[in-house]
Design a protein around this nucleic acid. Structure first.
Lengths: 155, 155
DNA sequence: TTTTTTTATTTCAAGCAAAAAATGTTTTGG
DNA sequence: CCAAAACATTTTTTGCTTGAAATAAAAAAA
């Protein structure tokens, strides 16, 4: 693609590659701490928390396909996670009247209460782990990340 | 924990939480693209690439424990990944002379060549996915992320 | 109505991930 | 020397993840 004397990868790319490696490292570190705390403090996992968070935002419940759409994970993946949440009594599958294929997934009362506790802890943990960023810097940075997200929004 | 009229989570934490959600989203999006391209273009995976990248940096090879230390993944985890790389002929396990427990993992010649191709593509992909960040902005940002990493360095 | 297509979901296979237990091996302290 | 501790690695278990195939029901086309 880039022929001749110029190297295949432009020198500029080094900076972006460095940025990528750092943000990947940071993200993984934070995720590791979260995973550990969710496990020890609540006996749950990040994916289960994510599902409950999505359901908390949609009180009427979500269909499985909508759920995997919101979370941007594969269809078949959500099945297993929801199964476990059902076993735990945090979530129920409700048959959709007119459609025997679909079912709505909804938080139970217990699920709502449990999620509230977890969400509060989660916010505290993030605040602690990202103290390196001042609030206004965090705000600015958050906005800049849309530069990445927007690019792949359609994919 | 925080009683009375004040909310349990300080208002400042909202900015950090927002930042976390954005960077997590961005990171996952980029990872998803990388996963897909590694799969279709090279028939490999991100974890395998990570292992090969680590081995490329240490020409003398790495012991399993050193490898999992560098990559910061669990011990038992690396076993399976290296097994597959061995099957593919990209990596070999060399017995350490004085120690029948340990073995050095090293890239084969084929592994080195294959990694070079993959690394070049990887750098190009990152450069493409992060075009939203100007090179100097990327550099500044990368430095700021040490604020997170440094905090957990010891953990 | 019958066929075809689309939609909703689950199942399956392969692989990644952590934690914990198990298996050897080497080193160390009596 | 021998038991205990430390070390290197693998195995096991549980769960997440994707992509692809399989079911099944609903909607559209013929």
């Amino acid at each position: 693609m880039t022929p001749g004397t110029r190297p295949a990868v432009a020198p500029d790319s080094r900076a972006r590659l460095r940025l990528w490696l750092r943000m990947l490292k940071s993200t993984r570190q934070v995720e590791a701490v979260l995973r550990d705390r969710f496990r020890t403090e609540f006996g749950t996992t990040l994916p289960r928390f994510d599902v409950m968070a999505a359901l908390a935002r949609y009180e009427g419940g979500l269909k499985m396909s909508a759920l995997s759409g919101v979370l941007r994970v594969s269809n078949g993946n959500v099945t297993g996670i929801v199964d476990r949440l059902v076993d735990e009594g945090h979530v129920v599958r409700v048959q959709v009247p007119g459609d025997r294929r679909a079912s709505l997934v909804r938080l139970t009362r217990r699920g709502q209460q449990e999620f509230a506790r977890q969400a509060e802890a989660h916010a505290r943990w993030i605040d602690e782990l990202l103290t390196g960023f001042a609030p206004d810097e965090a705000e600015t940075l958050a906005a800049r990340f849309d530069a990445v997200s927007a690019k792949e929004e359609d994919a």
